[in-house]
């Protein structure tokens, strides 16, 4: 059975619930807007139902704990083609088994999910490391990001813990939404204008460029030329992140 859903997390969980209810195993789960009609099968379109989604999560938590629900949610954020079926597979065997299958690395799909989660974890860690804030004239700190996966929902809390007394925004320019924090609460926002990859200098405080220059100086001076190892450098700081790294700008 082919299932279509709205592309949201709860949408996918609703599909999984529905496939259990209909006793009709999924052969394909795909966001409606990506579905290309074939000749043989008509898809079942499942509408998102938060209550049903929560029941699926509750079921997974019962079998595999928070680690289980974290695993499938984080893998979902990878936006990989076909990730839906892998998550579906996990929920199915988790429900069917009498013991916790979370660490059954002999199962290929479960091992793959763990690998994807690790990849996501790495990207989240890179966001914690590579986000660079710039201070605007009105005292807000703004950072632009463009992560490989949709990791903003997993990355913001770190900064809430760190900068509770500051006003800041982290904006994903590829997915057009940001995490905004105003010293009291966090919320996701989307700017009306499409955001470019760079912030205009007109927006920034004068001190901003001073500190950027100082940081570039520091970066240059802390280098030890006798030990140069560009291969290692690139491994740690892949080029695709450079456009947001102040120290790599010049």
């Amino acid at each position: 059975m082919i299932y279509c859903y709205d592309g949201s997390w709860h949408g996918l969980l609703s599909v999984i619930f529905e496939s259990f209810r209909l006793r009709a195993p999924a052969t394909q789960i795909i966001p409606t807007d990506l579905f290309q009609p074939g000749f043989f099968e008509t898809p079942v379109t499942v509408s998102t139902d938060d209550e049903l989604a929560k029941r699926v999560l509750k079921g997974v938590r019962k079998k595999s704990g928070k680690a289980g629900t974290d695993l499938i949610y984080q893998c979902f954020l990878s936006e990989q083609a076909g990730i839906e079926l892998k998550i579906y597979h996990f929920v199915r065997i988790a429900m069917a088994s009498s013991e916790d299958v979370l660490h059954n690395y002999r199962d290929d799909t479960i091992l793959q999910l763990h690998k994807i989660k690790k990849m996501i974890g790495r990207e989240v860690h890179r966001m914690h490391a590579f986000v660079r804030f710039q201070e605007t004239k009105d005292g807000m700190l703004v950072a632009l990001i463009n992560p490989d996966f949709n990791v903003l929902p997993l990355s913001g809390k770190h900064f809430v813990d760190r900068y509770p007394a500051l006003h800041w925004l982290i904006y994903d320019t590829r997915r057009h939404y940001g995490w905004h924090y105003d010293q009291h609460q966090s919320r996701f926002i989307t700017l009306s204008e499409k955001q470019h990859d760079y912030l205009s200098v007109n927006l920034l405080t004068e001190l901003e460029t001073d500190y950027q220059t100082l940081w570039q100086t520091y970066f240059k001076k802390t280098d030890i030329p006798e030990r140069r190892n560009m291969k290692l450098h690139l491994q740690h700081v892949p080029k695709r992140y450079w456009k947001y790294l102040v120290e790599k700008w010049d």
Binding site: A129, I224, H233
Partner: peptide, 13 residues
């Protein structure tokens, strides 16, 4: 800890 960048010799900054 978090390495915010790496020097060109590959050391964590």
């Amino acid at each position: 800890g978090i390495c915010h960048t790496y020097t060109q010799d590959g050391r964590c900054v």
